[in-house]
Structure formats: structure tokens, C-alpha cells
């Protein structure tokens, strides 16, 4: 698994279900060799994985993504122009044992990703 996509600058959990994580993207990560040569754009799926890892950090437990209701990648994020961002995590326990995760990656007025997904403890 890619382990040098981002670094965590700060994790501010309000509870085990809610919190904010400050991250910095690594422009030297190997994914940019392919995505795309001479035009580094942060891959949407890597941002989804970053959200999962931030949610795991807030939740203090490994999580599996069971389904994605909707994920919008509204603004392109690039590691050179947008090196830092906040990842907002908001989870609610559901009756079926899953959690509904509502998350966003953004910086100031810019929103790079919004996600509504069902996740579960592994």
C-alpha cells in the first residue's frame, strides 16, 4: 500500500466519531509518476484512502468501506498548489452495525472532496 501519500500534521478528535485532521500531501509520492506525467494531480481514490485513514485515526480502530453512497471530487487538488488541507470526519452509528461516514477534504473556501459512505469496524 502507498505509505508516503501524505503526512498528518495534527489530529483533533472531538470524540471517537467526530474530528478534524490536518494533512500535508507529499509531492514526491510515487503516484504522481503516473498521475500524471508532468502534471501532478492528487488521485481521487488516494484522497478517499486518506479520508479512511483519518477516520481510523479519529475512531482509533481499523475501518472497512462497505459502500459509497456518493463521493464528489469537485475541485482538482494538486500537491504543489494545495499541499495542505483539513479532513473533516463525522460518523454516526447506524442500526445495522455500520457507521454512516460523512467526510470532506477542504482548505479555506475550497472543497476538494465530499464523501458519504457506510463503513464498519474490522
Amino acid at each position: 500500500m502507498i505509505d508516503d501519500y501524505f503526512t498528518i500534521l495534527r489530529c483533533s478528535p472531538d470524540s471517537r466519531l467526530k474530528g478534524k485532521v490536518r494533512v500535508r500531501l507529499n509531492p514526491d509520492c510515487t503516484v504522481y509518476a503516473g498521475h500524471f506525467p508532468s502534471e501532478p494531480v492528487s488521485p481521487g481514490v488516494c484522497n478517499i484512502e486518506m479520508v479512511r485513514q483519518c477516520a481510523e485515526l479519529v475512531h482509533n480502530h481499523t475501518l472497512r468501506i462497505n459502500s459509497i453512497k456518493q463521493c464528489r471530487l469537485t475541485t482538482l487538488m494538486t500537491p504543489l498548489l494545495h499541499p495542505q488541507a483539513d479532513v473533516n470526519i463525522d460518523m454516526q452509528a447506524k442500526e445495522d452495525g455500520y457507521y454512516r461516514l460523512v467526510a470532506a477534504i477542504g482548505e479555506g473556501e475550497s472543497v476538494y472532496l465530499t464523501l458519504k459512505a457506510d463503513v464498519s469496524d474490522v
Binding site: V45, S67, I68, Q70
Partner: peptide, 13 residues
Amino acid sequence: KLGYIGEIKDCII
């Protein structure tokens, strides 16, 4: 052309 994911919807894993 270059392609980017704009949205993922009703994805079940």
C-alpha cells in the same frame, strides 16, 4: 485525453 473522476455514486464493495 486525460480523465479525472468527478463523482462516485452507489458504489457497493
